[in-house]
Nucleic acid binder design. Sequence first.
DNA 1: ATTGTGGCCTGCCCGC
DNA 2: TGCGGGCAGGCCACAA
Length: 261
Amino acid sequence: MPELIEVEVYRRLADRAVGRRIDAVEAPDDWFLKGGLTPNVVEGALTGATITGTDRIGKLLLVHLDGDRPELGLRFGMTGRLALDGEAPITDLEYGSKRDLPEWDRFALVLDGGARLRMADPRRLGGVELDPPVEALGPDAWTITLAQLRTALGTSTAPLKARLLDQSKIAGLGNLLVDETLWRAGLDPARPTRSLADAEVKALARRIRSTVTALFDRGGSHTGDLQAARHRESTCPRDGAPLQRRTIGGRTTYSCPVHQR
DNA sequence: ATTGTGGCCTGCCCGC
DNA sequence: TGCGGGCAGGCCACAA
C-alpha cells in the first residue's frame, strides 16, 4: 500500500512513541535489515535509546533517537505496515481488513510500558536501515515548490511519469498517486518530460500538492477518482473515453487518451 | 549520466 | 477444491 500518504499515517502513529525508551529490539529476519545491518548491531544501537521524534521524506520514515544514536530508517515497500500494539486506547487503524499473521512481523521495537511498534510485511520488500542516505532523495512531493519541480524535471527526455516516480528527483509519489495526479492534470504520462510548457509545469506543481492533500483527506493513495477505473476495459470517469493501459516507467499505467495530452 | 529492464519476495485472485 | 499463471501500490543492481 504505502506511498507517501500511507507513510505519513505511519509516521503519526510512530509519533505516539516519542518519549518512550526502547527496551528491546526484535529483528527476526536478516533479509529485512539493509545496508549490511545485522540483528546484533541493530539491537546494540537501539536498545536503551529514547525516541525523540519522527520525520518523513517521501516514503522513508525516520525515527530520531537521543544521544549519539543513529537515525532509524523504515521503508515499507509495497506491502509493509506499521502498528503500535498495546498502547491503550489505540485503535489498530492500520490493519483489520486484511490478514495480519505473526510470521509477517519483520521488525519491532519493544517500548517501556509494554507497547510494541512493529513492522509487518508479507512480501518482505520493505526494510530497516540505520542512518539511511536521506540525501539521495529529492524534495517531498507533498510540499514541492514550483522551483523544486522545475529542478526535478530538468531537461529529461524520460516519460513524465517515470520522472515523477524517480525518488531521487521527487520523493513520495508511487504508481497510484502519479496516475491520479496526471489524470487530474490532464497530462499524458508518456510525454517526454522536457516537452512540458512552463504553464504546464506550474499547473503540475499545484496539482501534485492538491492531489496528495485530497487523497490524504480521503484516507489513502487508493481513494483517487481514477482508482475505480484501474482495470482492463474501463472508461475515463471524467469523459467516458476508453482508458488506455500501458507500461510506462516499468509500471502499469492507466490514462485517458482524450483529456490527458 | 540517464534511461530502461529484470529481479527481488510472497500473497492473492482469477480462470480452468 | 486444487492448481497454475498473472499480477501487485517499491526499490535496487545492472546493462545499454
